[in-house]
Amino acid sequence: MNGVDAEHGDGHVPAVSVPSFPRIELRFGHPGRGYQPGEWVTVEYCIEGLRGERPRALERSALWYTEGKGEEDLGVHFFERFCTLETIDRVVPEGTFAFQLPTSPLSYEGVIVKIRWCIRLRVFFESGRDHVSEHVFTVGRVPPSVLP
């Protein structure tokens, strides 16, 4: 697992530093988290440390975003939101989902432009705060760019 947990809405705080925040374990179908365009991605996840606090909603998404010198662009490829009591119970504290990758964009490690793919799980609590967990994976096998 290579994920980043953060509290959102009123700030990003590493989950490990504040024990009351949940911890989201996520496992990809491919051990190396490397996929090819058009391939199916299967994901299993487990949300720990809820301590009895009931989530109000859960969002599962797969998206790409740009990093680097330019302003950040973002495109969502897969998005699901569960916000009723019945559906929440089906996807919390653990669940599985799958989606098929598009043909593009591929993951890219450029010099001033980078493209990253990730899975985001976002838990909304009754208290109003939300907690997001981001897990990066790669699409395609484009070697990193270096200045000629």
């Binding site: 179908g29 090819q36 365009p37 058009g38 391939e39 199916w40 299967t42 799958a98 098929q100 990758l101 043909t103 593009s104 591929l106 395609g140």
Partner: peptide, 10 residues
Amino acid sequence: VPVKAVATTA
């Protein structure tokens, strides 16, 4: 454009 997508595995 990217190379044609591979066959699905799941």
